[in-house]
Design a protein around this nucleic acid. Sequence first.
DNA 1: CCCAGAGATGAACAACCGATAGGTTATCGG
DNA 2: CCGATAACCTATCGGTTGTTCATCTCTGGG
Lengths: 224, 224
Amino acid sequence: MARVRSSRGEGARLRDELLDAAEQLLAEHGDERDVTIRAIVGRAGVTPPALYLHFPDKQALIREVVVRGFDDLARTTGAAAEAAGQAGAVAALRAGVLAYLGWAERYPGRYRALFDARRETQLLRPDGTGTSVAFDGLVARIAAVQAAGAARAGDPERIATLLWAAEHGLATLRVARDRFPWPPPGELVDGLLVTIVGVAPGALPTGAPLGGTTPGFSSSSAPG
Amino acid sequence: MARVRSSRGEGARLRDELLDAAEQLLAEHGDERDVTIRAIVGRAGVTPPALYLHFPDKQALIREVVVRGFDDLARTTGAAAEAAGQAGAVAALRAGVLAYLGWAERYPGRYRALFDARRETQLLRPDGTGTSVAFDGLVARIAAVQAAGAARAGDPERIATLLWAAEHGLATLRVARDRFPWPPPGELVDGLLVTIVGVAPGALPTGAPLGGTTPGFSSSSAPG
DNA sequence: CCCAGAGATGAACAACCGATAGGTTATCGG
DNA sequence: CCGATAACCTATCGGTTGTTCATCTCTGGG
């Protein structure tokens, strides 16, 4: 890994390169355990001590990678929802959820790291209140669907909580149980929108039916 | 950890004790990484080589612990559903889901281990077909609710998939995001039954309202 | 041209991991 | 009571982890 030494005053450039390297490793391997100091610095073309010029310890670096991940996820889902917004509130909500699942499937390792328990400090946004832009966005999109009269009534925040849990469950289970005969993401999301949010099936962009005849449904291990 | 040496022919007793020790460690610490060979044998009151008399390597032991965990989870939820079955199909379904969430909250480390991705071989039941008793049980309970006319129609397996994902999401998020103002489990489960399964709110054992006025709902990080 | 200092390194530390070779102790049939 | 052997231990191996100390190298301002 040939690397040109940073010129004077640009030592901080390595900092970003290390974060990029860690992010890539996390994205490639599915396991945070494989993101080791030596793997990070090796990819960045540097030796271990150089890392400690920019981070007090590994934990600090990982934490920053996780923060980056949250930003990327929120930005991705928000952009998808906004892009689809012209087709209506339902399409926007649907696009956001679909983008969420897509991100989690594209970067399983990163997604896992974001929601790993036993993470020392819980991630709270730096604005102090502890409010999540992403969650609030989801609430707003649900409220918009309700306001458009395209879904049944109900507390948007409560519904957002259930929807979030469901999409998180799908996001993690789809990679952890890849032998389970999962329906296509689009159908799953449609199912969530119809069942949890109470969108009328006809109001979906696809006009997809629910509980249709999807054959071959029985396998793998363990719910109750 | 004083331990009496097993008498002749009862050497296999240690095998169970090691499994118990590993299970306890997994239950106490939230992390599979803390369940080390030395920690296991230390708790069992023996030294590392003794473990290799009963397991070829660590992986084999952990796998067996995971299988045990699946059995325990399935048995717990099944028993809860059956016990509540006298109060009707809805009560049975509700009790099963609630027991699922309860188990996951009581043993976060074990639950995490069960659904950990990057587990070498996917857990398939030894009966060959790959069918999960637990998932089939959930499907059956949903079908029973539908047959009783207490829920809207729809493919039970599709609905079970969504419900499973949602309860898995809640199970993991509730421990990973303990600063999030989660509503009580009972209300969450009621929400799932009403929204996903389509149970009429009045048909719930609690007769709980949905989308009620649960105040103080806004915080923490990251859905989309 | 030179040298202060930013940028990065070589080598090693202690701690821990899973696993093994070979020896020790207690048991129980005969 | 003896000796075969099941049950278990002592000691250690090779490897990996995060981290640090002392040192080197290159850059650029004066």
